[in-house]
Design a protein around this nucleic acid. Structure first.
Length: 746
DNA sequence: ATAGGGTTAG
């Protein structure tokens, strides 16, 4: 720049002889254009008396580089109006502008022009045509140009690969890359970067590793772009350590490099590491951009950290990042996930620019809270404002209904979306399966899971987990085993969420041995798997096995959580292991710093009552920060039977009936307590009270066995609390429930 | 002439 400007000054000083020289004037325009000084170049260009093809090329190229694509195309037209024919230097720039604007027709016209004036043999022109067609999504046309080239250089190959990657045709991109390698064409950083991008999109571990290897063997410099692609690839396939390694050996890092690692940490739930990276980034004097903030806000949303979220929001306001739709959607999502949906709505209303993601974010927030009416309103409003819903929008509306128990509405929406041509995807199906299961329609959930496969959708890990959970709910060992078979045939047993669900399914379906068999096949066992197995043992009254597993998980260095303690205390409670239970409860609080839940207290109170230590049980209840629930009161009432504490029985009875006035079991417990104390007067009062409330003593169930079949007769319908008990009993016997509603009605 | 990052649904 400096030298050029000095020469320019010298030219001006020397007067018109040089300054008005046509050749020198053009050269000056080209010089300023190459230095990216747009205003000076344009100024000098406008003053040119004779505009030749070289100066036109320089100015059109500069406009194109600076992102003034329309100006570049206008220049191209003007140039021709002035009778100058664009050459093989101008045409590539014009094509680049067409590609950037996705102006297909203009691009085709330029293609026609290139053919007419015989430029098709130029590799620059042909490569640019491939790029232009690729950017416009016309891969067939790009391929046609590519195939028609007599002499192909690496840019042509790369443009073809890039075209495929940018249009989501990742397999094709990898294919072209391999062909290029077989042809012995030099693989450049662009080829490798594109391969890595395709591999990342496909979760193609081997291909991406090959790309990394080729980069190393080819001695390619690990610059910010290649390095970032490597980091991106390793993060997307879940090899975070390899991504970290690449990061640590990169010399030239830019904001994209940092953002990649930060977003990966957020994606894998390592929020502390992500925030630490932000601090390190700051100390390197890099300023956060909208991508950084999108990640920080997502981290705040995932961890319901409203304080962090607000800090992020404020940063966006101070640095004017709010106009970015992605950032705005993240802010919205953050408020929604931090359970401040009114703030989310406020952010939404203040947004000037909304896209489909923005609408879907708000819609998802209402759906998540089960506010199906609000969700539906948003769903219609977005259409009124000209944004047509995509499959995500439909999924949220369906979820909203299911969360609110509106099964029919959810199913209606499911068929309506199909009749409007929106195909349900794996998440739609999974939502439906999970929703039916939550709402107590386990059998229907299993049917939907089968229907999904008939529709040609391959089950995902989550859908399998949900289906297994449905099998567990209805104690359907037969269906559970069928899914286990599917899982085994498709090598999915190794996924820990699936293994955990299988263990849970088998134990709840009454087969703790099969549960144990699945448990043993998992090599690296994580806490949820241990919890499922411990819960199985607890349910089956095998407290010793449950305790042994608890010891084993600690030996493996895994920290038990509140769920572990719920299950293990439950096991101790049912097996009457008093000292073990109390010891566990103490260590849970003092060593593992788990805040005891109502369930934990319930187990311990029950244990203390079992051994007749009513005083200790009462002392514990006074210490806890919850109002005692019906379970706890029930335990105390049972303990009173041994102590004949009439005042306490009076108090507990009153409280119990306040909490659960409609549960006949409570009346039975109360009358038993009075009966033990010999207070027959109260016993008959309780019986009268029951009659008065129209309650009947739980009939339990009666059953007959005919051959292999057990017929169970229930009083009440499927939603009656007794039904749950029957499920549990049948599950423990490893049997399935089949409803015969006619018998049920009679 | 060709290359890298972020937001929404189970």
């Amino acid at each position: 720049m400096n030298t050029g400007q000095q020469i320019h000054a010298r030219i001006l000083k020397n007067g018109d002889f040089l300054a008005r020289n046509e050749y020198i004037e053009s050269k000056l325009v080209i010089f300023y254009a190459k230095c990216d000084i747009l205003d000076v170049a344009n100024h000098l260009f406008c003053r040119l008396r004779v505009k030749n093809v070289f100066s036109w090329a320089a100015v059109i190229g500069l406009n194109c580089r600076m992102g003034f694509t329309e100006e570049a195309l206008i220049g191209h037209v003007e140039m021709q109006e002035n009778g100058i024919l664009p050459d093989n230097f101008v045409v590539p720039n014009v094509l680049k502008a067409c590609g950037a604007l996705v102006w297909v027709k203009f691009g085709r016209a330029v293609h026609g022009y290139a053919l007419k004036v015989g430029l098709e043999g130029c590799v620059f022109v042909a490569s640019s045509l491939i790029d232009m067609y690729g950017k416009c999504g016309l891969l067939d046309d790009a391929k046609k140009v590519f195939d028609g080239m007599i002499e192909r250089n690496f840019v042509a190959w790369n443009s073809m690969i890039v075209g495929y990657v940018q249009n989501g045709l990742n397999e094709e991109a990898i294919g072209v890359f391999n062909e290029m390698r077989l042809e012995g064409i030099e693989l450049t950083p662009v080829s490798v970067v594109s391969l890595l991008s395709a591999s990342a999109n496909l979760d193609a571990l081997e291909e991406g590793k090959q790309g990394h290897a080729i980069a190393i063997i080819g001695g390619l410099e690990l610059d910010n772009i290649l390095g970032s692609s490597i980091i991106n690839f390793y993060s997307k396939v879940g090899l975070l350590e390899d991504a970290e390694l690449a990061f640590s050996i990169m010399v030239k890092k830019d904001i994209v490099t940092w953002n990649l690692l930060i977003s990966s940490y957020v994606q894998y739930g390592q929020v502390a590491k992500a925030l630490n990276m932000c601090h390190l980034m700051k100390s390197e004097n890099l300023k956060f951009d909208s991508v950084t903030l999108a990640s920080i806000l997502a981290a705040a949303a995932d961890t319901s950290n409203l304080k962090l979220g607000k800090e992020g929001h404020c940063y966006c306001i101070r640095n004017n990042l709010e106009p970015d739709v992605v950032v705005a959607s993240s802010i919205l999502d953050m408020y929604a996930k931090c359970e401040t949906i009114d703030d989310a709505k406020r952010v939404f209303n203040s947004m000037t620019h909304r896209d489909i993601v923005t609408w879907n974010t708000l819609l998802a927030a209402y759906a998540d809270f089960g506010l199906s009416g609000e969700a539906l309103r948003i769903f219609y409003q977005m259409q009124l404002e000209g944004v047509s819903p995509n499959v995500i929008s439909w999924n949220s509306v369906i979820l909203g209904f299911l969360r609110n128990g509106q099964l029919d509405e959810a199913k209606d929406m499911f068929s309506e979306m199909q009749s409007l041509g929106v195909q349900p995807n794996i998440i739609t199906w999974t939502t439906l399966i999970a929703g039916l299961a939550w709402n107590g329609h386990g059998n229907e959930a299993i049917l939907v899971f089968q229907k999904m496969q008939e529709a040609g959708i391959k089950p995902s890990a989550t859908s399998i987990t949900c289906a297994l959970s449905a099998c567990k709910d209805v104690a359907s060992l037969r269906n559970g085993r069928a899914i286990h078979g599917y899982v085994a045939r498709h090598d999915l047993c190794l996924l820990s969420p699936i293994a955990t669900s299988l263990v849970d399914m088998y134990s709840k379906c009454g087969n703790v041995d099969l549960a144990k068999r699945v448990f043993d096949t998992v090599l690296t066992k994580e806490l949820p798997l241990y919890n499922a197995m411990i819960s199985g043992y607890a349910l089956h009254g095998q407290a010793a096995e449950a305790l042994a597993l608890y010891k084993r998980l600690q030996k493996e260095g895994i920290n038990p959580d509140n769920i572990t303690f719920t299950n293990i205390l439950y096991a101790c409670n049912h097996a009457g292991l008093i000292s073990e239970g109390l010891e566990l409860f103490c260590s849970m609080i003092s060593e593992h710093h788990v805040k005891p839940s109502m369930e934990h207290y319930g187990c311990v109170v029950s244990l203390l009552c079992q051994c007749g230590n009513l005083d200790e049980a009462l002392r514990l209840i006074l210490k806890m920060s919850y109002e005692p629930d019906a379970h706890i009161i029930g335990s105390l009432l049972a303990a009173c039977r041994a102590h004949h504490e009439i005042d306490l029985v009076d108090y507990l009875s009153k409280r119990l009936l306040q909490l659960e006035p409609k549960n006949p079991g409570n009346y039975v417990a109360i009358s038993n307590a009075y009966a033990s104390a010999g207070n027959w007067n109260e016993v008959s009062k309780v019986r009268d009270l029951m009659k008065e409330k129209g309650l009947r003593k739980n009939p339990g169930c009666s059953w007959i066995q005919i051959g292999e079949e057990v017929h169970v007769f229930l009083a009440g319908d499927r939603s009656h609390p007794n039904t749950e008990h029957i499920y549990a009993i049948l599950a423990l016997l490893g049997m399935e429930m089949q409803f015969n509603t006619e018998i049920l009605r009679s």
